[in-house]
Amino acid sequence: MNNATDTLIPAPRTRVTDLTQRSHTARRNHLIDQTFKYLGVAATFIGLIVLAYFIIDIAIDGIGRIDWDFLTSLPSRKAEKAGILPAWAGSAWILALTAIISLPLGVAAGVYFEEYAKESRMNHLLEVNIANLAGVPSIIYGILGLEVFGRLMGFGESLLAGAFTLALLILPIIIVATREAIKAVPSTLREASYGLGATKWQTIKWQVLPAASGGILTGTILSLSRAVGETAPLIVIGALAYVPFVPSGPMDQFTVLPMQIFNWTSRPQAAFLTNAAAAIIVLLLITFIMNGIAIYLRNRWQKNLK
């Protein structure tokens, strides 16, 4: 008996220590969990605080400067008379032309890769290079655009040369977005279409593309809102600093908002810095609106798919 109890007693003891150990580890894990959670929150907030600080700072400097005259006036050497009409009109032109050029090219390439391309070394090489293109610095596109579109194709310093260059710049993003969107289309849709006797092209045109359109548009709009902030490639192409007119056609010379901002920030007079802040607010609004449209489209698209 004694022996039995002797052998029995230690067992619960070890179980007890086991339990405390386990609760100790659990507490530690919980602590690590919490720490990581708060680190994550902090990381998120650092980004947001910097953005908020930037926006508030710019808003304080520039919001009072924005009025109808500012939006509808030509640039001037007198800061208080100067406006951004040619700049935002140029940005709008560039945006529209870039979208018209890049969307069909990007979507067609994306469809090819997802629907038609077979596993071959050639296609693999193409895919890798498109991924590489996304990482090329934008100024390189500018140099390429100047030679190919500006000089070789004879577009000169026109909106068209700028739009083609920016279209190249965002093409990889649109291709990737298109491929992801097509991948997300449920295979049942395709199978149903084939089952009804539709051809491949009919399936793509009537089923796959409409179902993927939300994702494609979201990607396109996000890439366009990147294009609207680009300056470096356009400077190389020959976007100008002083343009006293609104472009009336794609072959006209032009300036864009980032160019006008850049020009104003390097002026010695403080009043031009206020103008630059005001122009930055306008540019930010354009990007925010575009991102808003992208989010709206994505939400609608997700609902439709379900």
Partner: peptide, 16 residues
């Protein structure tokens, strides 16, 4: 800018 007042139909553009 001043020349626009005198010759409004001449488009002068300046790059940097």
């Amino acid at each position: 800018e001043e020349y626009r007042v005198v010759a409004p139909n001449v488009k002068v553009t300046v790059g940097v």
